[in-house]
Design a protein around this nucleic acid. Structure first.
Lengths: 150, 150
DNA sequence: GCTATTGAGGGAATGAAATTGCGTTTTTGA
DNA sequence: TCAAAAACGCAATTTCATTCCCTCAATAGC
């Protein structure tokens, strides 16, 4: 189990800001030698505190400015239905987030498309053909006054 | 300006899955030489399509494991009501995202708390006292089979 | 109080990867 | 069809990740 001391917190903070910082630079910033620093990072990864690394994209810069949240209800509530739906969502590049939630519907998606026509394609070709999908409610994002995760 | 062809899409998809994949491996997966691949990645960074890289942390391991999406309807639909609500959300640390959406409600929030009691505090003390808030619908996130923005 | 053991750190060597320069190929547009 | 521009691949160079081994400090047992 990885510790939760000051240095590890610094490491996590730095890697959250820049996940591609070199180990040399990271070690320098937290005041360790490269080898000691690398060991700590690997410990954090092994302990499951760091679950991965991702590039952060600006979708508007690549023509994906049409953002929607979509509530999805499944017709069946079996484990198989969920797995099948989740697999379909994982393969769809438009789907940026897929949350399994409580309430009247099972899933909340964040879907990012270029425009309305391309959203329509996603809606009919992907969602419409996905297994077990029963109810779809779309909320179009007009703006995000606050978004700390973008 | 960076292109938006098949290869760049593959590059972006790979980097959103694993932002620390080596350039050699990435080049291999998209079918380019390392140098050509690196140039494309750098172009995407320079064009602002890739805005950065982040380590993905296990939030439960850090004491913010209670995640909810909250639909909020306002009692008034004036500009002043919206501004006041957005200001309140901006000041609340629990609110990670605030989207202005179309539909039967005006806002969709993502709220991250340590646990249910701390969520209750947010619900009553922050949302309950915010101006013009009329309808509140909470969806508790039980899991996120896919989340490329975390 | 002393010593064995364990855990963490530092430094240097090694191997791998990023990066760059350059010639070649492909694409584009007149 | 041909010239210019863009993109590519190869190879050399630099930088970095990773490993090995030694040292130091804290801890537990005697």
């Amino acid at each position: 189990m990885a510790k939760n001391d000051r240095i590890n917190q610094q490491i996590l903070q730095q890697l959250t800001r820049d996940g591609r910082i070199s180990n040399l630079e990271l070690a320098d910033r937290v005041g360790l030698s490269p080898s000691a620093c690398l060991r700590r990072v690997q410990d954090l990864e092994r302990a499951g505190v760091i679950t991965g690394y991702r590039a952060v994209l600006n979708r508007e810069a690549m023509g994906a400015g049409f953002v929607t949240y979509i509530g999805v209800g499944l017709g069946e509530h079996t484990k198989e239905a969920q797995k099948a739906f989740e697999r379909a969502m994982d393969e769809a590049v438009e789907v940026v987030e897929c949350h399994n939630i409580t309430g009247t519907i099972e899933y909340l998606l964040r879907v990012e498309c270029a425009d309305l026509p391309s959203y329509k394609r996603f809606h009919t070709d992907i969602l419409g053909t996905s297994p077990f999908v029963a109810a779809i409610t779309t909320y179009v994002v007009m703006g995000s006054p606050k978004d700390l995760r973008s």
